[in-house]
Design a protein around this nucleic acid. Sequence first.
DNA 1: ACCGAATCGAGAGCACTGCTCTTGACATGG
DNA 2: CCATGTCAAGAGCAGTGCTCTCGATTCGGT
Lengths: 233, 233
Amino acid sequence: MNAGRTARERARAQLTREITEIARRQLGTEGAGGLNLRAIARELGMVSSAIYRYYPSRDELLTALIIDAYTAVGEAVERADAARDPDDHAGRWRAVCHAVRDWALAHPHEYALIYGSPVPGYQAPADTVGPAVRDTVVYGRILASAYAAGVLTPPDGFPAPPPSFAGDADAVRELMPGLPDDLVARAIAAWTGLFGFLSFELFGQFANVIDDRATLFEHQVRTLGRLVGLPAS
Amino acid sequence: MNAGRTARERARAQLTREITEIARRQLGTEGAGGLNLRAIARELGMVSSAIYRYYPSRDELLTALIIDAYTAVGEAVERADAARDPDDHAGRWRAVCHAVRDWALAHPHEYALIYGSPVPGYQAPADTVGPAVRDTVVYGRILASAYAAGVLTPPDGFPAPPPSFAGDADAVRELMPGLPDDLVARAIAAWTGLFGFLSFELFGQFANVIDDRATLFEHQVRTLGRLVGLPAS
DNA sequence: ACCGAATCGAGAGCACTGCTCTTGACATGG
DNA sequence: CCATGTCAAGAGCAGTGCTCTCGATTCGGT
């Protein structure tokens, strides 16, 4: 990000920010489908065609918002993790989970944008893969650190993954060095369990069934933490 | 559903079916956002306004498709469950999971419609709640049956749910009579873990990381089954 | 200080959407 | 056999994403 030397460059950067800002607000109230270039232009007192000087298409704008959303949840997770005692692995896991949930509840449409149905006709460009795994990187670091410290005590009674899982386990292990295949698989189960819960909660699957979702979430987080072997707490 | 006595009634039912059929195909190729009344009309050789005689609005059509999707996955789950030995509870659980996954992979857009981001501006009417829980009903029956048979042996080392969970547990227990709060919570964790995995798989979160998704899925299903206490198999 | 080049917003316009209203043709049932 | 209700068609409205052109402004090099 260059600071922008000339007046034009600064004005351009400013306007681009404003467009993204308004778009994010629109996203928050209307959802991804309600993203409306003309409404953004109206709010800016510009004509719709002028927007195209800054974002060549609606999809480009969407990509920017997707990257922003991934970055936001990634930063929230990083902050929550950093605020904890590094040796309190179970606490870090819970903090990460609650950070994701708090962010998701505060920004449901942005959560839907990145963890819900893909936008029809939209293909995520390569720029999104970096920000997309920021939260997962933190998660992997917690598990790797806990494993290295020797505090992972996964409950017995669960099946071992088949040998054919070894290849994918190697790929995932880059995020959580050292963990054996068994724990890598459990880590995936815990991670998908976290987002499965949140998707159910945010997308209305809990309606009329689960009232006290905060309580159940806290319990599920502890259960999933134990599944990967994190100490009870 | 009346068989339709008069010619007109039969023609009406037939056309309604055809519209839904074309809409479902459109949904399969374009996604929910690409649902296009005018294109449906074109394909039928009608003019767009005529569609409104059968579906008063686009949302109404969407509701029909949502109910269809819930019904389809519910029936797939019921078939898979019925094909198993009723006493093979672990096998029934696995069959249910694979039925959901097979259906989801075959109909990704319909999966997204019911388990992905809610359609913007669309509020699910009450008609959808019945079909929406058909799969969950089957799931609950399996667990209740296994618990009644005394074959549920949940692994130790997991926390107990807090007393404040009791209220919601009662609501969920209607689907799985007899299960103690602890197992109800685990059942929810397994169920959300199943759909969390599928959402990750279908919505692209596994891209470039997990290749052999079938293997990992099978393992996760067994892991989640064990979590609720179903016997290994 | 100037001037060609790059960039900007405005405006008109295209093809498309969901949806409404009216009109004339038709089948239905008393 | 005729009044009634239903039907498809057509025109039209307000809105969309996006393209193109046209003057005005600003920039960078001379």
